[in-house]
Design a protein around this nucleic acid. Sequence first.
DNA 1: AACGCGGGGAA
DNA 2: TTCCCAGCGTT
Length: 360
Amino acid sequence: MYSAAPLEQAAALRRALLHWFQEAARDLPWRRTSDPYRIWLSEVILQQTRVDQGLPYYERFVETFPDARALADAPLDKVLKLWEGLGYYTRARNLHRAAQVVRDDFGGAPPKTAELLQMLPGIGRYTAAAIASIAYGEPVAVVDGNVKRVLSRLFNVETSIDDTATDKELWRLANLLLSRKHPGDFNQAMMELGARICTPRTPDCAGCPVADFCQARKHGVETERPIRSAKKPPGLKDLVVAVVRRDGQYLLVKRPEEGLLGGLWEFPSFETRPGQSHQQVLEAGCKTGLKLPVKPGGMVSAVSHAYTHFKVTMTVYRCTPLNGKDPKPSEHTEFTWAARSEFEAFAFPKAVHKFIGLLD
DNA sequence: AACGCGGGGAA
DNA sequence: TTCCCAGCGTT
């Protein structure tokens, strides 16, 4: 349930918002270009990622891959390496695949409508509308996390924004409110407002250009919007990590392409249950999982890392191989031996970087 | 409709 | 600590 009152003053609201954006907009590199490829690149990098965090990655990608063709022609491992540390690595894989589709099926330039853009991997409803409105001026609204918060306050939405019906309604409201004349600026203004003024905990209503239109503010409940559904607490996981060194080189394994940290490299690791000895898990894991018997040695470090859905503690041990043979990991797991000086070519998860500096 | 998927900065 | 970010794809 919500109030539709802001729609009756939509024209004035748009005017105030666009005027504010013109004055207060941050000077960001993707706002200085009309290149659809760069707009696209920025939008993918910024999915679930703050501007400050994505900015340096955007700069490096533009430098390294100046157009879709350069990105499409690059090996995936190089793209993943450039993406290293940014998280949600499926984005990098999909971006790379989409660039190849653009190269092969669209003559090197991204398609020009939201409907067509959404057919590319990694481009959903939000990203398609963002590219189409900003790069091509198509009158389609965007709804991201910022816009959801802004709209739920403007209209005093009293149902959970995690509910599908509410989500659908927010998209409808966004399109009703949209400036048909300046859709790109309007969309960016809504997101900018959410990021800078209409923040989650302590919104700056005094500095808000559209405070007069805000129904949540009118009822004094702005800090209680949006309403979110309860989420389940993260689980815990304990891993032991085997740093196997042979002739000055370390054994690295590549994670499966799908799933958590897909395509990244790491040291062999095994989950431990409470009560199990780390040495025993390491010995058994290396013997059965890698077909490489080892003798566990001293601990390198114990690091913890928080993911979205669980927390992991990793206890890292040096291990000595008991024979000179190569491992035979189960299934199609790729492995390699690499010296520390060669690590810079591999994309590692952040958790690995937490102890990699301690190795010789 | 629900869930998996990273990492970091703000409060 | 907790929250949540210019979301998407799979099941």
